[in-house]
Structures are given as C-alpha cells and as structure tokens.
C-alpha cells in the first residue's frame, strides 16, 4: 500500500504542506477563501526542534492503536487507510493520547481530524506531497 513518507533531510520547514493540507480538506476551491484570516487545522504538522524539521502525519499503521482504542468506533481501517467518521467522534481524545507519533489532533469544533491521504476529499491524492517544493514528503509503496 502506498503511504506518505517524510525525509527530514529534504524538509525545509517551510510549512507549505500544512497549508496545502488545510486547504485540501477545507472543501473550498480557492485557497485564499479557505484560509485567509482563519486559524488552520491541517492534518499534518511540521515539527521543528530548531535544527531538524519534519512533517508528522498518520502512518496508517497495520494494527493502529488509535482504531483499537476508539470508544465510539469512529476510527476504522478501510483498505489500509485509517479513516475517521467525524460524525461518530465523541471527542474523547483517547486516540490522540495513544498515537505514538502524535499524528492526530482536533479541530476548532473539538472533533478529531487526521490524515486520510486526501482519499476522502476532492483532491484524491495527498495535497502535502504535491505541494512540497523539495520532495521531502513522498507518497509511495515501500
């Protein structure tokens, strides 16, 4: 299965991936309209320790702790992709706590959001990958 991989060697910390992600999942067709003067809630986050930068997003684990721990059965594995049914999420945040990678977060409404590889939005393929100027994020079979 193709997954998103990050190569910190090439990550510039420009954070464009965050903006492209937020835009991709905004449902808007114009980035300015989607993101201007609003807090953004991307499904991946660039971690920065001052030296190394790294975009963190869901690894789509084969046996995901988040799915196992979800009390509302909002998280499930669909053809290898860990997806979330946001209507079912009860905002207990257990998944956020158990994810060893810190790949989950919640949005302004408190509902958990996570990377679904853009398969469930209009883009159809990971926007962070397409938007990365230095191929630090790749979507490939390994």
């Amino acid at each position: 299965m193709k997954r998103i991989f990050v190569n910190e060697k090439w990550c510039l910390g420009c954070r464009l991936c965050e903006y492209y992600c937020a835009f991709a999942n905004s449902g808007e067709i114009n980035m300015v309209k989607a993101l201007k003067d609003k807090p953004i809630y991307p499904r991946l986050r660039v971690e920065d320790d001052g030296g190394v930068t790294y975009a963190v997003s869901c690894r789509h684990c084969t046996d995901p702790l988040c799915v196992r721990s979800c009390i509302a059965a909002a998280l499930s594995v669909d053809a290898g992709v860990v997806t979330i049914d946001r209507d079912r999420c009860v905002s207990c945040y257990t998944c956020i706590l158990v994810c060893p990678y810190g790949a989950l977060a919640h949005d302004d409404a408190g509902v958990v959001r996570k990377c679904e590889l853009c398969l469930n939005n209009a883009i159809g393929q990971p926007a962070c990958v397409a938007g990365c100027p230095n191929r630090a994020i790749v979507y490939e079979e390994r």
Partner: peptide
C-alpha cells in the same frame, strides 16, 4: 493583502 494568508512561507524562505 487580499490574497496573503500569512502562512509566512516567504519569511521562512
């Protein structure tokens, strides 16, 4: 300014 979303990519780059 009507387009700038203050993503600060320009600043970082």
């Amino acid at each position: 300014e009507a387009r700038c979303i203050q993503c600060r990519v320009c600043e970082r780059q």
